[in-house]
Lab assay of single mutants.
Amino acid sequence: MQIFVKTLTGKTITLEVEPSDTIENVKAKIQDKEGIPPDQQRLIFAGKQLEDGRTLSDYNIQKESTSHLVLR
Rank of each mutant, 00 (worst) to 15 (best):
L8V: 13
E16C: 14
A28S: 12
F4A: 06
V70E: 14
I44K: 04
I3W: 02
I61R: 01
L69C: 02
A46E: 15
Q31G: 07
S67Y: 13
L50V: 04
I3V: 05
L71G: 06
S67R: 11
V70K: 06
I23N: 00
A46L: 13
E64A: 11
L69N: 02
E64Y: 13
I44R: 04
E24F: 14
T7Y: 11
Q49G: 06
G10P: 02
S65K: 07
Q40K: 12
Y59H: 03
R54A: 07
Q62E: 12
Q62S: 14
T12P: 03
G35F: 04
Q62N: 14
T66P: 08
N25T: 14
I23E: 00
E51L: 10
G10R: 04
S67A: 15
T55G: 02
Q31C: 13
G10D: 04
R72Y: 15
V5Y: 03
V70T: 07
E24P: 02
T7G: 06
V5P: 00
Y59P: 01
S67G: 15
S65R: 07
D32R: 12
L43S: 00
I44L: 11
V5Q: 00
T22V: 04
A46I: 06
F4G: 04
K33P: 02
I36F: 09
S20Y: 11
S65Y: 07
E51T: 06
E24N: 07
S20T: 13
E34S: 13
L71D: 06
E24A: 15
K6V: 13
Q49F: 13
V17N: 00
I44M: 11
E16V: 12
L56R: 00
D58S: 11
V70H: 15
G53A: 10
L56H: 00
K33Y: 08
Q2V: 15
D32F: 11
R42E: 12
G53L: 08
K27G: 01
Q62P: 10
D21H: 05
K48Q: 14
P37W: 05
L71H: 06
T22F: 08
G53V: 07
K6R: 10
T14L: 10
P37G: 04
A28M: 14
G53S: 11
F45V: 04
T9A: 12
H68E: 10
L50K: 00
S65D: 09
R42L: 15
K63Y: 10
M1R: 03
V26W: 01
K63A: 15
P37D: 06
I23S: 01
G47K: 04
L50D: 01
L71I: 13
S65V: 08
R54G: 05
K63D: 13
Q62K: 11
E34P: 01
I30N: 00
Q62D: 14
I61C: 02
T9G: 13
V26T: 03
T55P: 05
K6N: 07
K48R: 10
K48Y: 09
T66K: 11
V5R: 00
H68L: 14
V17P: 01
L15C: 02
M1P: 01
T55Q: 06
I44T: 11
T22L: 10
